[in-house]
Design a protein around this nucleic acid. Sequence first.
DNA 1: AATGGGGTGAACATTTTGGTTCAATTTTTA
DNA 2: TAAAAATTGAACCAAAATGTTCACCCCATT
Lengths: 204, 204
Amino acid sequence: MGMIKIMLVEDHNIVREGLKRLIEMEEGMTVVAEAGTCAQARANLRDDTDVILLDIKLPDGDGLELCQEIRMKTPQVKFIALTTYDDALFIKKALEHGVQGFIPKYASFDEIKSAIHITLRDGRYLYPGLNMQALMGLSETGLSEFEIQILRRIASGENQKNVAAALFISISTLRRRIKGICTKMGVDTIEEALASAVKKGLIQ
Amino acid sequence: MGMIKIMLVEDHNIVREGLKRLIEMEEGMTVVAEAGTCAQARANLRDDTDVILLDIKLPDGDGLELCQEIRMKTPQVKFIALTTYDDALFIKKALEHGVQGFIPKYASFDEIKSAIHITLRDGRYLYPGLNMQALMGLSETGLSEFEIQILRRIASGENQKNVAAALFISISTLRRRIKGICTKMGVDTIEEALASAVKKGLIQ
DNA sequence: AATGGGGTGAACATTTTGGTTCAATTTTTA
DNA sequence: TAAAAATTGAACCAAAATGTTCACCCCATT
């Protein structure tokens, strides 16, 4: 019959066990596999899975790569990412990796249930508040990929001379871009910009 | 009878609902109150609560201040903090605010149950792995409160001149401390140190 | 063809930060 | 107490980052 087969990939046992009990209490849903790491997910994946509820951040790697990998093997499976408010910026990237649904952890279980049903029916689902949040998060910074590259390199200890060389721009331009970054982020120093960028998950 | 009355303070609805179901399934435990924010926690607090399972990070403030506040009113209540691996550094601070128990979110529910029982029996509980993790976390950085102050100020956009003045040390000493911070953190630049510190939750 | 905007690079001066050394003071250790 | 070590502050210099101005090129508009 039409039992929805769900796999849980989530490193927090509390969340995973809680979700499992909640799902098992529902009619028409069952948890067929669980994993707390990317490695476990690869091992425990079952071909007949309908939906994978996936935590983006896993102890042994990025959940998104895992997602892309699994979709090669089992294209029919739908992914729903469990995000936190901090992860809103990842939505764009997650979509590129083939995640069809997004639901924040602060959502209620009823909302998760409908997320599962709607994702299976329509092939996609975006939690109502997330869309705006993501846009807000992006417009707050509005940084281009290039500007984020600059931040990443500075955050990894390179000086401006090397950053400019690595990105094939002059020191002048680099300085202009840094100033632009600070303006966009509404801060005064590159240090403040870095702290803010890390907080927002723009750089790892 | 000896029913343990539990309050849940946790902003992620999934976690909270899951915990609630898990607890309600247990003999001898019941959830008497819930909250997703500090404000809700103040409003929903009941005098007869035995244990509060508390997420440190809440949308409208620090769970630790809330903890201290509630302990004034209802001293008999025991607090168990739900931490993530990133929060290990907060253990020391949390202890000062009167948290008696610590359990990471990646612990299993069975471990949470025993955490609750042991905290009530002994007045304290520390998840086995956390102690070492916390020490590792601290030894990884080993930064003093003063050094963290420095990072915080630089991260908020102050230049070294102002930081030194604000902390009543000379520029020479400040520079020495900054160098010490970089050495301790194993990085080359203050920018890299900042990025790392934000990642580790040392500064907000 | 002329105009103007956006982006880039160079060339200054100035400020800020980092490297090094030395003297004075406090704290620890023998 | 005396010696050694750690901490602080000052001075000087080098390096890096920032402020400012100007010229150039590309491209779209007129």
